[in-house]
Design a protein around this nucleic acid. Structure first.
Lengths: 229, 229
DNA sequence: CACAAAAAGATTTGATCATATTCTGGCAGT
DNA sequence: ACTGCCAGAATATGATCAAATCTTTTTGTG
């Protein structure tokens, strides 16, 4: 019967199921990953045609993804028609330091008010994976889990605008972080996550916020020092 | 001589002169204007085809401009494939309040350290135009000059990343500001610009920053109250 | 018989692509 | 060195396909 087909369609495509992810979004996420976790180094040029081949996508979607990432500060318009991964500057790092320590502690304060036991559990799990990556010296895994930890905190805070801003900041220093980790390894990197988790588990938002602030400041300081900026 | 032509070209095309502005940027700026100062109200749908006619541009440039503004938070993806001007929410306004009072005073602190007499003069001029607009009750001019004042402060601060963030925040509350002004007129709107200017002219960065913070907080409070959020 | 809910069709709008056009940067020839 | 051409890359257009909404028609029930 026709109605059963219809039914099947409703189940498959239903309320908010897989749907069909537009190509431009897929490209955006892929490229974002590459910027955050590695493949792309600061200063590296990004060409449309290169991505068309690399990501096996059409030209229009690639173009839109690049525009979006440019707006988010992850890529930089070079005036002529060239686009590159931005190179860090002393002033830029200073700005990022200020912005992160202004935004992230507030997100943690907000998160602390509404965090659940489940949330704390998954944060703990992420942090364990992070520790494992550090002892293994696995830079890629370190970067991913470190980001995952912070991103999970943002998600808990339920503050979409502040989260978008924080995510934008990550995109700006991600490539540099990668370079620094590749240079000095995963030891000696800051980790105030334990302190943060403990404070969160007893509902002490102020202490958690301060711990994250320390984490952020130490990490950014590390970047600044390692790049001689 | 050929060298004189070269000279002329350098002057004309030089460091950052007119060049030829790509269509997607033109569309971006036009649309940005419409969002910041008016034509587009919160909740209003934005269609690609509509803009193609309205702005007399091709489909690709319009598409790219929309992506960029979506990334900046000025437009919102509606899950299906529709894009609208975001509607303010209580939580959203709270986030904007926090973000603005975290970012803008810092920009003023930075500006205070390097501001010149010329800068102060042009700020004063902008503020006079602003006052004129207020007494005239000209909402459009008020919005433009008010933005111009803050934007000039950002420009003086020479902090591109923080400036981009601040500009992004303007895009998010611009439409609401418009609605509020249309409702309550231009009287009763905050103006701590005189105080800011005076503090800047005597090199008191801390006082200037605090004055701007007041200006920001009062303005956002006004928005919050007027929208019953 | 009237009304409301559902289905089918029509229409608008978004996504993607192939292609034409314009611009940039390098290279050769003076 | 300088000027002018050329290859390659980016920009922009319009056509085509797919999806979502709107409209109309059908159908079932009180």
């Amino acid at each position: 019967m026709a109605s059963s087909e219809k039914e099947a369609l409703k189940v498959a495509y239903g309320t908010e199921n897989p749907k069909r992810i537009p190509a431009h979004q897929q490209v955006y996420f892929k490229l974002r990953e590459q910027i955050l976790f590695g493949e792309l180094a600061p200063g590296q040029p990004v060409t449309i045609q290169g991505l068309v081949e690399n990501l096996d996508a059409g030209m229009t979607p690639v173009r839109e993804a690049i525009r979006r990432l440019t707006a988010e500060g992850a890529l930089e318009f070079q005036g002529n028609r060239r686009v590159t991964v931005p190179t860090p500057t002393p002033g830029g790092i200073e700005e990022l330091i200020y912005a992160r320590q202004a935004i992230e502690p507030e997100l943690v304060r907000r998160a602390a008010k509404i965090i659940t036991a489940d949330d704390i559990e998954s944060l703990t799990k992420i942090d364990n994976d992070l520790d494992a990556a550090i002892t293994r010296g696995d830079v890629g895994a370190y970067l991913r889990h470190n980001y995952a930890f912070h991103a999970k905190l943002y998600a808990v805070a339920q503050s979409p605008i502040l989260t978008e801003i924080a995510d934008g900041l990550w995109l700006r220093f991600g490539p540099s972080l990668r370079v620094v980790c590749g240079r000095i390894g995963t030891q000696n990197l800051p980790d105030e996550h334990k302190e943060t988790l403990q404070a969160l588990s007893v509902g002490d938002g102020a202490r958690a916020a301060e711990a994250i602030r320390q984490d952020v400041m130490q990490g950014m300081q590390q970047v600044k020092d390692s790049l001689n900026l």
